[in-house]
Amino acid sequence: MSPERKTFRRIGPDQRREAMICAMLEIIAEDGIAAATTRAVAARAGVTPGLIRHYFDSKDALLSAAYQQHMTDLTHATCGVGQGASAAARLVAFIEAGLRAPVVSAEAVSLWAGFLTHAQQSPQMHEVHAQTYREFRDHLQGLIADALCEAGRATSTAALRRHAIACNAVIDGLWLEGGVLPDAFAPGELVAIGLASIGAMLGLPLAQNAQTATQDMIQIRITP
């Protein structure tokens, strides 16, 4: 597929940089990482290849920026939920958000898979991968710590870290399968499996908490 050429317009440096990153992500999602040449990105973003080199000293730098943007967007879509609720409800909301659209999608998994090989070959992209993984896992660890504390169960930092690694693996596995095989699962099945599995691992009734939260929301909506 040939890249779509956009009409040039005057925008600020930050917006221009963002346009280049968005163009890179769009091309990789549509045609794969091999199609995301500097020329193709420039045409899609409506800039010259020389301007891309002004903002990014190499294609690897642009790839790293695009990968960081993709992973950060997924993390924010998952982490920015459940504020102000109980600790258990916040953990439930985090798991649910990570196992539903738009986080679970064929495009999100395709982009991640396209970047993965390069993340192993490029030190810069490898550091982005490590950084975004730590951010996601550390946020999950905090939610787990709060939920266990709320349940009256003090837990060591080492144990919390292991819990976060294991629970993250469950979420990642279900996310991957849901994105690759969306028709293989019934609506809400990934969420139900995730809550049941992580709840069993932590010894917390997360599925029950999810049902209670849903019933509370329904009650709020029908109360005059």
Rank of each mutant, 00 (worst) to 15 (best):
Q124S: 10
Q124E: 12
H126N: 12
H126I: 07
H126R: 13
H126K: 15
H126D: 12
E127A: 15
V128H: 06
V128M: 05
H129V: 12
Q131M: 05
Q131D: 06
Q131P: 01
T132V: 04
T132M: 08
T132C: 03
T132W: 01
Y133M: 07
E135D: 14
E135I: 13
F136W: 11
F136T: 10
R137I: 11
R137F: 14
R137L: 15
R137N: 13
D138T: 04
D138C: 06
H139K: 09
H139W: 13
L140T: 08
L140C: 11
Q141E: 11
Q141D: 06
G142I: 11
G142R: 08
L143M: 12
I144M: 08
A145S: 07
A145P: 01
A145R: 02
A145G: 03
D146T: 00
D146L: 02
A147I: 09
L148C: 02
L148V: 01
L148Y: 03
E150V: 08
A151E: 04
G152K: 05
R153S: 03
R153E: 07
T155L: 01
T155N: 01
S156K: 02
S156A: 08
T157E: 09
T157G: 08
T157I: 06
A158D: 04
A159D: 12
A159V: 14
L160S: 09
L160A: 12
L160Q: 09
L160N: 09
R161N: 01
R162F: 04
R162V: 03
R162N: 10
H163D: 15
H163T: 06
A164G: 08
I165Y: 06
A166G: 01
C167Q: 07
C167F: 00
N168R: 05
N168G: 15
N168D: 13
N168T: 14
A169D: 03
A169V: 00
V170L: 06
V170F: 12
I171H: 10
I171D: 09
D172K: 03
D172Q: 06
D172Y: 02
G173N: 13
L174S: 09
L174E: 10
W175N: 06
E177M: 15
E177S: 14
E177R: 15
E177A: 09
G178F: 05
G179H: 05
G179A: 05
G179R: 05
V180S: 04
V180E: 02
L181K: 13
L181W: 11
L181C: 11
P182D: 13
P182F: 11
D183Q: 11
D183P: 05
A184E: 13
F185M: 10
F185Y: 14
F185D: 09
F185N: 05
A186L: 15
A186S: 08
A186N: 06
P187A: 14
P187W: 08
P187I: 06
G188H: 05
E189P: 03
L190C: 00
L190M: 01
L190K: 00
L190F: 00
I193W: 00
I193N: 03
G194R: 01
G194I: 01
L195S: 00
A196H: 07
S197V: 14
S197H: 11
